[in-house]
Amino acid sequence: MQQLLDPADVAEAVDGFMAATSAARAWDVETAFDWTAADAGRLTEGQRSAVQFVTIIEDHLPGYFDVYHRSFPVDDTVDPAEFEHNRELYHFTVRWAAEEDTHARALARYQRASGMANRDLLRGELAAEGRKRFDLPYEHPVQFFAYALVQEKATQIYYQHLREVSGDPVLGAVLTRLARDEARHFTFMADMVGRYLRAQGDAAVEPIRDVIAAFRMPLADTMRGYWRWALKIADVASYDHTGAYEHLIKVIDRAVDAKSDRLTELTGFIGECGALAR
């Protein structure tokens, strides 16, 4: 892949992420929550539907991880310099994947513990969507981070909104943990996008613009009934992924002291996309 950051830049971003993930903030599915108190009877039908939806999204982690593994390979298909970059990024990717997999397990555990789902039936339902291929058709590396920046922030915001309306304190506690993790993931992606903008300037503008112009949340093009379901959960807890666009604009504004005309046009374009979607 062309136009990669210097490996030292990636290492610095990864080190910052790891330093922000203290042992005291670590949690596990088995002990972090009182599963015996989980009660889906406290949820509205819409809230239960939202839990089912986000469980499917989170459970597709193998597909998301595979995208990064294919796009930033750590094997002999790349030259040593590219390998160095990808190996530094891999330190983040495996930590991120472990945390996202924990999210999937926590949501599935909630469904079982609260009486929403039978374990065997849930496993089959998740497999029906999970086996579908996920892909991001990007060529410039900054696009993977710009996409994830919006996706992680949008997910964080939705978990916070769903927590506020949740009738079950156990679900609220789960969503609090998930939102905090997504906030840290967003911070890493924002750091990477900022580094690309500082290193490459206008060369990163068109790739980021292309991400926003064709943005779809994960599984939007593969999950059966996605758009109908997404509208339903939006009614439950104020969901709109374009709410994350303002955070991308802030990242761009902070990345450079004096924006070029192309960067100014990019932030205007992102703002317009957000406004049109509302």
Rank of each mutant, 00 (worst) to 15 (best):
L5E: 13
L5I: 13
V10P: 14
A11Y: 05
E12Y: 09
V14H: 08
M18S: 08
A19C: 09
A20L: 03
D28V: 10
D28F: 01
T31E: 05
W35P: 12
T36K: 10
A37Y: 02
A37F: 06
G46N: 01
S49D: 02
I57F: 02
E58W: 00
F65G: 03
D66F: 11
N86C: 12
Y90N: 09
Y90C: 08
F92W: 15
W96P: 08
A98T: 13
E100V: 04
T102P: 04
A104D: 02
R109V: 04
R112Q: 15
M116D: 09
D120R: 14
L121M: 07
G124E: 06
A127S: 13
R131P: 05
P137S: 05
P137E: 06
P137G: 06
Y138R: 10
V142Q: 11
Q143C: 12
F144L: 14
F145L: 09
Y147E: 15
A148H: 03
A148F: 03
V150R: 01
Q151H: 10
K153C: 03
A154E: 01
A154T: 05
Y159H: 14
H161V: 00
D168F: 04
P169C: 02
L171V: 02
R177I: 06
H185E: 10
F188Y: 14
F188C: 08
F188L: 11
A190P: 02
A190D: 04
M192N: 12
R198K: 15
A199N: 09
A199T: 15
A199H: 03
A204K: 02
P207E: 03
D210I: 04
I212C: 07
A213M: 09
D221V: 07
R224P: 12
W227G: 09
R228E: 07
K232A: 00
K232F: 00
A234W: 00
D235R: 15
D235C: 10
V236L: 00
V236Q: 01
Y239C: 04
V251T: 07
V256A: 12
D257H: 11
D261H: 06
L263T: 14
T264F: 10
E265P: 11
I270V: 14
I270F: 06
G271H: 01
G271L: 03
